[in-house]
């Protein structure tokens, strides 16, 4: 018998995932087209008087702009089990946004700036109700497809 575990996002309305892949949920300004993540109340472009934003799914792929390895365990609000040093990347998406997120699927010493990445969703820990709590991460993808 295959056990099917319930999966819940670490925060609601931040990303979506299915067998088809994962998407970040953000907003786009109906006036100037600027993108925001997470969803914003308003457009922030001072030259834009439209201000109304609509929900939009961000591109799934990007390039690594910078990264760091977190060597110390962050305070308790962050749960990751089991804990081990991990990388956080700053990822440039085709729409111009740079998004921070954990990196996965890559040894810490193999991380390179400009490497192509794609969005994925993975469990951080199992909560007290036995559900896997999921967050978004970026993982390396084949060159030329980003």
């Amino acid at each position: 018998m295959v056990e099917t575990l319930e999966q819940v996002p670490v925060a609601e309305d931040l990303f979506r995932w299915s067998g088809d892949g994962a998407d970040l949920v953000g907003t786009r300004c109906r006036g100037c087209g600027a993108h925001y993540f997470p969803k914003s109340l308003s457009c922030r472009n001072p030259q834009c008087e439209h201000k109304a934003v609509e929900e939009v799914l961000m591109g799934r792929r990007g390039r690594l702009h910078s990264y760091t390895v977190q060597s110390y365990r962050p305070p308790a609000l962050f749960r990751m089990e089991p804990w081990a040093p991990y990388a956080i990347g700053l990822v440039e998406l085709p729409n111009g946004l740079r998004v921070m997120g954990m990196l996965t699927g890559c040894a810490l010493f193999d991380i390179r700036i400009d490497m192509p990445l794609e969005l994925t969703v993975e469990p951080l820990y199992r909560d007290e109700s036995g559900r896997d709590v999921m967050t978004y991460k970026f993982q390396p993808t084949a060159e030329g497809t980003a």
Binding site: V10, L14, Q70, L77, F78, I88, M100, T135
Partner: peptide, 13 residues
């Protein structure tokens, strides 16, 4: 809240 729960991004990050 998000920077902590989603990735544990401390200020030094």
């Amino acid at each position: 809240y998000l920077r902590w729960v989603t990735m544990g991004a401390t200020n030094p990050v």
